[in-house]
Design a protein around this nucleic acid. Structure first.
Lengths: 152, 152
DNA sequence: GCTTGACTTGAACCATTGTTTAAGTTGGAG
DNA sequence: CTCCAACTTAAACAATGGTTCAAGTCAAGC
């Protein structure tokens, strides 16, 4: 019961870095930001469970989608703390990005398809232009005049 | 000839801010970064030509597309310096983003469509996975092992 | 049991994209 | 000709996402 043979070995920070392709400095940073966590050995070194590898993968994929670490941390907080996450757990977390992603793909497609003619024709100065009208966007940007372009 | 009547009046930084919706502090920052430029009055105040409005619009739209200011600056450098840019000039500059944008839309669509099942099934640890394999991406990431995920 | 590579920390630093503040100057309306 | 809003600058500060460094500790192989 002390060390179950079929239980996969824990990973050091160097091993996790090597297998994930993420620099150890970034992994420690993620841990400070509470995106991942570790147990410590008696000598204060980190040991990660195997499923941390999947957590890190999720973090990097999410970052590629343009999602800030704070939002990723909040999504990861949905995972159970007492057991290894199941496929269903991961599916639920992944769903967090789906709608946002769909919206952003649509927005980018519109922008691409209208960029040249809108910039060329001068309608960038007109509120109704698809490029400059932020009403399509996900969330309101707060009060104040935003004639041309909403915040980046 | 000193002040041609049909020539539109120049804009102060406050006017450009008001009409573009971009804070004056950001406009001054863009000018320091050489994305826009102004002439100075005898009293050292900025005066912008009208077409700066379109330049600023282009900058903000490009930012929404996830393009860094340095790249926007390089694209804007393609515009003529001696005359007001024509529709064709703007079209050429806009083309800079098209291919990149198309690639990114495709990438994001793939990511969205495979996110849940890939994360759920565990294939995130496999090199061939669409989510983790950066070979689809635009540029090589430089040397060194990148097992799981390329840089964000 | 010693050596050496891997680990620990905090702090400083980096790039990007700005905002805020202080202290002073300009310019247009009346 | 005066007054005040709008302008000027440099420098400090902010948030995000890390990297680098110095100084010291741990652990695993020989």
């Amino acid at each position: 019961m002390t060390q179950v043979p079929w239980q996969a070995k824990e990973l050091t920070v160097g091993e996790l870095s090597e297998r994930s392709g993420v620099p150890a400095s970034a992994l420690r940073f993620y841990e400070r930001q509470e995106l991942i966590n570790s147990r410590r050995t008696s000598g204060n070194q980190r040991r990660y469970t195997r499923d941390t590898l999947r957590r890190v993968a999720f973090i990097r994929v999410s970052q590629r989608l343009g999602i800030p670490l704070a939002a990723i941390r909040d999504a990861l907080a949905m995972l159970p703390e007492n057991r290894t996450p199941t496929r269903e757990d991961w599916a639920r977390v992944s769903e967090c990005w789906r709608q946002d992603l769909t919206d952003r793909i649509e927005q980018m497609t519109k922008l691409r398809d209208h960029l040249t003619d809108c910039i060329g024709c001068g309608c960038l100065t007109i509120d109704r232009c698809v490029l400059t009208n932020p009403a399509d966007q996900l969330q309101a940007e707060g009060p104040g005049p935003r004639r041309l372009i909403s915040s980046p």
